[in-house]
């Protein structure tokens, strides 16, 4: 694979900034997708259930 400077410049000039923005949109969309809400709320509370009792 030729991963030289030329290749990378070509890649970054082909809308490199938009690739980064797309990546962040995917992450944000995944995190805030309405149907995922239940899973995440469940996960956030999961560490508080069925655990050792606090020491006091």
């Amino acid at each position: 694979m030729d991963l030289g400077h030329g290749t990378l410049v070509w890649f970054s000039k082909s809308f490199g900034l938009f690739y980064l923005i797309a990546l962040s949109i995917i992450t944000a969309a995944y995190a805030y997708w309405p149907s995922n809400k239940k899973v995440f709320d469940h996960a956030a509370k999961s560490v508080l259930r069925n655990e050792d009792e606090p020491w006091r």
Binding site: S24, T27, Y30, L48
Partner: peptide, 24 residues
Amino acid sequence: YYFVPVRAGRPIYSYRMSIISFWG
């Protein structure tokens, strides 16, 4: 992300924010 919620007895403030910061 494990011991703060457990010790405080409260779920993490925003689980979604934790995902975004993870990939960031």
